[in-house]
Amino acid sequence: MKIALKVNGEQHSLEIADENTPLLWIVRDLLNLKGTKFGCGKAACGACTLHVDGEAVRSCSYAVKFADGKKVTTIEGLRNEEAPHPVQQAWLEHVVPQCGYCQPGFMMATAALISKNQEPTDEDIDNNIINICRCATYYRMRKAIHRAAELERDRLSLSTKNIENGEE
């Protein structure tokens, strides 16, 4: 099956023998983007979380055929050229990662969260961020999620101002 994907802004046209191959392996092994992790293969741990058309999905349980014609964003494509994504900035400020393996999945889930909700409550975080971190970095992660939301609010108000000032 021929699959057209836009991954991190780059268009790919792939010939794929088994259209049910999890998107995870297409991203990792065919496109060589290793930031998206394999943890369980059962959509249980969230290490493979990435975005398809802006929605967080667990790519180990997402057949590549469903991504045909869609935009995929992975941890490698989260930042823009000038600056880290607010989530990454917050993660840097709070020095969240320990072993770091699960962190891309958490960051992608958080990026999806703050794109929809710039003022997440602790309850919103508890409900939506349900990945597993064995180093148990949750304490710092919660702080970093609030900080990321704050950075996102700043960014949005700045761009609103810029629009008001006719700068964009």
Partner: peptide, 17 residues
């Protein structure tokens, strides 16, 4: 809002996961 059914459940059964 973000982690929803569709985060893991697609339009058909996934035989891998």
């Amino acid at each position: 809002s973000v982690t929803k059914c569709a985060t893991c459940h697609q339009e058909e059964n996934n035989l891998n996961s």
